[in-house]
Amino acid sequence: MPISRIAIGNASEFGQSDALKAALAEFISMLIFVFAGEGSGMAFNKLTNNGSTTPAGLVAASLAHALALFVAVSVGANISGGHVNPAVTFGAFVGGHISLLRSVLYWIAQLLGSVVACLLLKFSTGGLETSAFALSSGVGAWNAVVFEIVMTFGLVYTVYATAVDPKRGDIGIIAPIAIGFIVGANILAGGAFDGASMNPAVSFGPAVVSWTWDNHWVYWLGPFVGAAIAAIVYEIFFIDQNTHEQLPTTDY
């Protein structure tokens, strides 16, 4: 069982140079991702008079997030593993691939990266609103939780299959492409219902800067549950337990 391999880690990790470099890489990758993703929505609203909720706006958001995440994962992969998502980090923790203390470092860096990106967007656009994630009319909080669970399951399952599994082979850049594609596809599927976050940090930055917290818990509970399920399923059924080993940061 993957749960038996969960590691708390050592407090000394907070001062290790490789851990701090990995956290910095997560901060930068998240800043890149949120600035491009959130910024694309703001730009589309400006150009189309608040048209980001139209079908064209949804396609634009999907494309922008897919491309930005591909880049953000790629540039961080060799340093931190390119998680760029607290839920992905949690999935790696549940599978025993990262310690709890290093996960906490990643979470802090990811949340700060998102907040800084939104602050930079607000400043550079002359004070335009960084819209927080919100539920669409007729969509209840628990409906949205299920959406987030299923979408994040697909994301973290893809991460495990293309980046974590020791049997993945030398597939190189395919992992960031696949991760970007599944996020883009999920935005097309769920964006009209709850914004399709799949990433607590992506929801956190706009919520802090706009100070809007309605149903914010949805964007934490759903992704973390979906990530845990994906990690457990993949670890139990597809990773050879006899050959399991802690993955080096350079691998993931």
Rank of each mutant, 00 (worst) to 15 (best):
A56M: 15
S4Q: 14
G138D: 10
V150G: 12
A134K: 11
L58Y: 06
I173C: 09
T54I: 12
L128G: 08
G222Q: 09
I179C: 00
K167R: 14
Y160L: 06
G51N: 03
I187C: 12
I187V: 11
F35C: 04
G205H: 08
T125G: 03
D214C: 06
A144D: 09
S103T: 02
T130P: 02
S203E: 02
W211I: 12
D194I: 11
A134H: 13
E245D: 12
A175H: 04
P55A: 05
N78S: 15
R102N: 02
P55T: 01
I187G: 03
H97W: 00
A87Q: 07
F204K: 00
A68M: 09
C118L: 04
A189P: 01
G127I: 08
G82C: 14
A60N: 06
A144R: 01
G91E: 00
F70E: 05
A134W: 02
L47C: 12
T89K: 08
R102M: 04
V34M: 12
A87H: 10
I173K: 14
T212F: 06
A23S: 12
I174T: 15
S80Y: 07
V94M: 00
L63Y: 02
L58S: 15
N50G: 15
L112W: 11
G9H: 05
L135M: 08
I177T: 03
I173D: 13
P248Q: 02
V75N: 01
V218L: 12
G82Q: 00
L111Q: 03
W211L: 15
I179A: 05
V208H: 05
F93Q: 01
A178T: 14
G195F: 12
M151Y: 15
I229W: 04
N49I: 08
E235D: 15
E13I: 06
I239T: 10
G172P: 02
T250G: 05
F90E: 07
W220K: 03
C118H: 03
C118P: 01
T158H: 06
V116R: 04
G154I: 04
A66D: 13
I79F: 00
I171P: 05
V94T: 03
S210C: 09
G190Y: 04
F224S: 01
V146G: 10
S12A: 15
F193R: 09
I232Y: 11
P86K: 05
N85P: 06
V34E: 07
N45Y: 13
F70M: 15
T243A: 05
Y252F: 14
Y252P: 02
K167G: 07
I232M: 09
I149L: 13
V150Q: 14
F224M: 13
F14Q: 13
V116A: 11
F70Y: 14
V94L: 04
S17T: 10
S62M: 14
S12N: 14
D165Q: 07
S210A: 13
S74P: 07
A11Y: 08
P223D: 09
S17M: 06
A228N: 03
S124V: 09
